[in-house]
């Protein structure tokens, strides 16, 4: 007898309408499917609704229409804290760690939903994965550098072994070298089997690590395709991904 296989689609949204005000939706009917193990990046100009889309999926922005399914289960009406238990991990763009708590306490908070006998082992595994954090676990998280904070936020999200990891602009405010480190780590996490969705403004870096890309415009999916070719499309690049990226794509 073989073990039951997990469904190939981890996350779907169907005709999703979401926004802070019911009569002013920012997301206007998005259909999205994320396959198990894939690395999807969501791109688009400012105000396209990228962050609102992932916040709605995480349960932080009201959904006014459509449905969100995680591993086949309808989570549209679930509060944010139960979506974590169902396997959805979200790393917000800013304020994504508890700065007044220590590194260890940040990880312990996330581990609280695991069975008691598995918490310490899981935190230890995360310290192995992120050695920078293990040096001084009692250090207050607010004292960490920008890159270390992002790593702590990602580690915190991975504590629960999520079905899907969603990150909202992890490169924001980081130096190019640190962005490179963060993205290399994200690629390694994805290659370890964690389905990853990345919202990014840094188009070049995002297309460099992702397998598939979506371009949002005015709350709708305007383009979709393999990351390797989407950036080479001069029309898409010029219109939606920024002229600088367009020139770089053309040059290469």
């Amino acid at each position: 007898m073989t073990a039951p296989q997990a469904p190939p689609i981890v996350l779907t949204t169907q005709a999703l309408v979401a926004g802070y005000e019911r009569d002013l939706p920012i997301i206007r009917g998005i259909d999205l499917s994320v396959m198990r193990g894939e690395f999807l990046t969501v791109l688009g100009p400012n105000g396209a609704g990228k962050s609102t889309l992932v916040k709605a999926i995480a349960g932080l922005v009201p959904v006014h229409g459509g449905a969100i399914r995680l591993d086949g289960q309808d989570i549209t009406a679930s509060p944010a804290h139960t979506r974590v238990r169902q396997g959805l991990a979200f790393v917000p763009q800013t304020e994504n760690i508890f700065t007044t708590l220590s590194i260890q306490e940040n990880l312990q908070l996330a581990a609280a939903i695991l069975p008691k006998d598995k918490r310490q082992a899981r935190i230890a595994a995360l310290y192995d994965m992120f050695p920078d954090l293990s040096a001084r676990p009692r250090r207050r998280a607010g004292q960490l550098s920008g890159g270390q904070r992002q790593m702590l936020a990602v580690a915190r999200a991975l504590v629960v072994k999520p079905s899907i990891l969603i990150l909202d602009e992890p490169s924001a405010g980081l130096s190019p070298k640190v962005v490179g480190d963060v993205f290399a780590r994200l690629r390694a996490i994805n290659r370890s089997g964690v389905t990853t969705v990345l919202v990014e403004q840094n188009v070049k870096a995002a297309l460099g690590v992702a397998g598939r890309a979506l371009v949002l415009v005015e709350g709708r999916v305007a383009h979709e395709g393999p990351a390797a070719t989407l950036g080479d499309d001069p029309v898409v690049a010029e219109l939606y991904l920024g002229a600088r990226h367009s020139r770089e794509a053309m040059a290469t």
Binding site: A58, G59, L60, P79, A80, H81, V84, R85, F90, P92, E95, N96, I97, F98, T99, T100, L101, E105, Q108, L109, A110, A112, I113, R156, V160
Partner: peptide, 24 residues
């Protein structure tokens, strides 16, 4: 304690607390 950590977390950032799995 775990409930104490949760209380401090909610005090600092209620939205992030929900994302972490804390039932506010």
């Amino acid at each position: 304690t775990a409930i104490g950590r949760s209380m401090r977390a909610v005090s600092e950032n209620p939205q992030l607390s929900g994302i972490v799995g804390i039932d506010i």
